[in-house]
Write a protein that binds this DNA or RNA. Sequence first.
DNA 1: AGGTAAGCTTGCCATGGCGGGAAGGTCAAT
DNA 2: ATTGACCTTCCCGCCATGGCAAGCTTACCT
Lengths: 137, 137
Amino acid sequence: MNIGQAAERSSVPAKTIRYYEEIGLIAAPPRHVNGYRDYDESRINELSFLASARRLGFSIDECRSLLSLYRDEHRASADVKAIAATHVAHIDARIADLKAMRRVIDSLAGHCHGDSRSDCSIIDGLAARAAGQPKEV
Amino acid sequence: MNIGQAAERSSVPAKTIRYYEEIGLIAAPPRHVNGYRDYDESRINELSFLASARRLGFSIDECRSLLSLYRDEHRASADVKAIAATHVAHIDARIADLKAMRRVIDSLAGHCHGDSRSDCSIIDGLAARAAGQPKEV
DNA sequence: AGGTAAGCTTGCCATGGCGGGAAGGTCAAT
DNA sequence: ATTGACCTTCCCGCCATGGCAAGCTTACCT
């Protein structure tokens, strides 16, 4: 199967497939006589697996580990779970960061008239937070 | 004031200050006879303002707009509020994405033994989601 | 006066995870 | 024979820096 069809079936763009091959995330597939890459079902499965993992936010390095566990019949499910747990922790941290940002912006925007007047609690807040930063932190 | 002190006082690394100058986010400061950049209080304030905005997740382009509003005594606070609202919407969308990922990973990990056995609902789930994707989506 | 350490200048390479596009070879159908 | 779609490699760009290097200036110590 050519790369185009592999891309379609795995939901991984052809460009990205070649990139994954380049960084050694997937093995280089055999080539047709004309030099075209040739993908079989098991490679499609790996690519699809990667597409899923990437959609769930796993980094390329995490995907590398997950994929090797996927290929390993003698894996320990604990290893898989550990990677997932680490990733969930990152997600939670990121969510917490975003929520913190949101809270601050909300509090700044709460007192902003949002009309044609120039005084603005958001601008003031950014300037004030700025002024306070070097000492407070 | 030299760039090192400006960096310290504004909490913006010297490297980043030069970058901001290069992309036209801040104006190029005057130079001393020796070629060193010279920052005054108002520039420090702008840099500190940028540090705050960046910490709150505003993109460089949003910072560009915010900064020009900060500098504009005749701004309309509505313009500021609009930028903040757009950014909050992005934050919310990102949070929703992350929560969705988290939910899926949690549901996959919930049935994973997490021991030395090889069967793993996470691996299976990633493979299955993969298989299902082309049709379902 | 000399040494040296810190700070400044420019510039170039790297990150992550690809996307875009050029220049060229190949294949299927008309 | 020619189109058009597909494939190949290659290199550049993104964002927002961080790191490093070579070569200045400045400040301080002896």
